[in-house]
Simulated assay, not measured.
Amino acid sequence: MPSRHDTQCGQTQTKPSGRRLKVAQPTKAQLAAKERKRALKKARKNSAYASEKMTLEDAIAVLRAVEVAAPNSTYELVVKTAMIRGSTIPKGRFSLPREAKETTRDRILVFAEGKQAEEAKQAGADIVGGLELVDGVISGRYQASMFLCTPALIRAITPKLGRVLGPRGLMPSERRGTVTDNITGFIKKLKGTSEWKGDKAGAIRAPIGKLNWPIEDVVKNFRYFMTVVKRATGNQRDPDAPVDKKETGNKPPMAITKVVLSSRQGPGIQISDA
């Protein structure tokens, strides 16, 4: 007697005649439409507050309510800036009043000779040397997250290393203080700080607290980090920074277009009083 067999998914069926009937499969267009519908539903769920601005304390309250099952989650801060073509990606160093995560130690390479080289080693530099290090940096044999240089050697290393370290934002620079005779003082200043850096689109991301912290601690970290970013982008003057008359008035501030606070599972909320 002829048998009939239905597959589990119902895609094929054997008839007494032996012929198989194929169940119509969704077209690529149908699958794409289904995926778009699913993505739109998810986006609506995650962006319930996307077009709404809140005060910092209100945003903290909302995120706490969303993350009630995960009190150890981290508040993530995103500061979006208007990157002008040809402008330098904003970056800097900071030490929050209360650290939101364990700080990572920089691997420091110092271009120095003589007494300054010895002082750099004693201060904790990982790699210290003169012009003999240049080719090793280019080839990748010597790698570091921070490069320092004495004024006596900067002109000698710039022709070869400028095109290698420059695009990565690692080239020693007088403006950033990484070209200095006080190598020891700079290394001591690095300890206990973390680096922040914007991406190519000008977005700056940083963890600024835990959901189970007192609200005052989160607010303090938020205000501190925003001050650091505003000063680095020219939106607020650092009263302790020396005034460079050559740059005054020539360098427009990099506008801050949006400040968003979020958590691991919570929505991104625009902050109105940033």
Rank of each mutant, 00 (worst) to 15 (best):
residue 175 R to L: 15
residue 265 Q to S: 10
residue 244 D to L: 08
residue 143 Q to C: 04
residue 86 G to C: 10
residue 182 N to T: 04
residue 262 S to I: 04
residue 18 G to S: 14
residue 76 E to V: 06
residue 220 K to G: 02
residue 179 V to Q: 04
residue 177 G to Q: 07
residue 121 K to Y: 03
residue 5 H to C: 06
residue 49 Y to R: 07
residue 85 R to W: 09
residue 218 V to W: 01
residue 198 G to R: 04
residue 87 S to W: 09
residue 54 M to C: 06
residue 44 R to W: 09
residue 44 R to E: 14
residue 265 Q to G: 10
residue 50 A to G: 09
residue 28 K to M: 07
residue 56 L to H: 02
residue 206 A to V: 13
residue 256 I to K: 02
residue 98 R to L: 07
residue 245 K to M: 13
residue 102 E to A: 13
residue 38 R to E: 11
residue 73 S to R: 03
residue 182 N to D: 15
residue 240 D to C: 07
residue 50 A to T: 10
residue 103 T to Q: 07
residue 155 R to T: 12
residue 38 R to A: 12
residue 135 D to V: 01
residue 105 R to G: 02
residue 272 S to A: 14
residue 206 A to P: 00
residue 234 G to W: 03
residue 118 E to T: 03
residue 40 L to V: 04
residue 118 E to M: 02
residue 254 M to W: 06
residue 53 K to Q: 13
residue 127 I to M: 03
residue 230 K to S: 10
residue 245 K to G: 05
residue 266 G to R: 00
residue 58 D to S: 08
residue 49 Y to L: 12
residue 75 Y to D: 05
residue 149 C to A: 15
residue 200 K to M: 09
residue 226 M to G: 01
residue 36 R to F: 07
residue 266 G to S: 05
residue 207 P to F: 01
residue 9 C to K: 11
residue 137 V to L: 01
residue 4 R to D: 14
residue 161 L to Q: 05
residue 23 V to S: 15
residue 69 A to P: 01
residue 155 R to S: 15
residue 25 Q to D: 10
residue 109 L to M: 06
residue 176 R to T: 11
residue 221 N to H: 04
residue 69 A to K: 12
residue 202 G to W: 03
residue 195 E to I: 08
residue 170 L to C: 05
residue 267 P to Q: 13
residue 158 T to E: 13
residue 101 K to F: 11
residue 190 L to K: 02
residue 266 G to L: 03
residue 126 D to W: 02
residue 141 R to W: 04
residue 245 K to D: 12
residue 216 E to V: 12
residue 124 G to C: 07
residue 215 I to F: 00
residue 99 E to H: 06
residue 209 G to A: 04
residue 94 F to K: 00
residue 247 E to G: 01
residue 244 D to C: 06
residue 256 I to W: 06
residue 231 R to T: 11
residue 27 T to L: 11
residue 55 T to E: 08
residue 161 L to T: 10
residue 65 A to P: 00
residue 191 K to L: 09
residue 208 I to G: 01
residue 153 L to I: 12
residue 49 Y to W: 13
residue 83 M to I: 15
residue 253 P to T: 11
residue 101 K to V: 15
residue 254 M to Y: 04
residue 164 V to D: 08
residue 50 A to I: 12
residue 1 M to L: 12
residue 274 A to S: 12
residue 259 V to A: 13
residue 71 P to N: 10
residue 95 S to M: 09
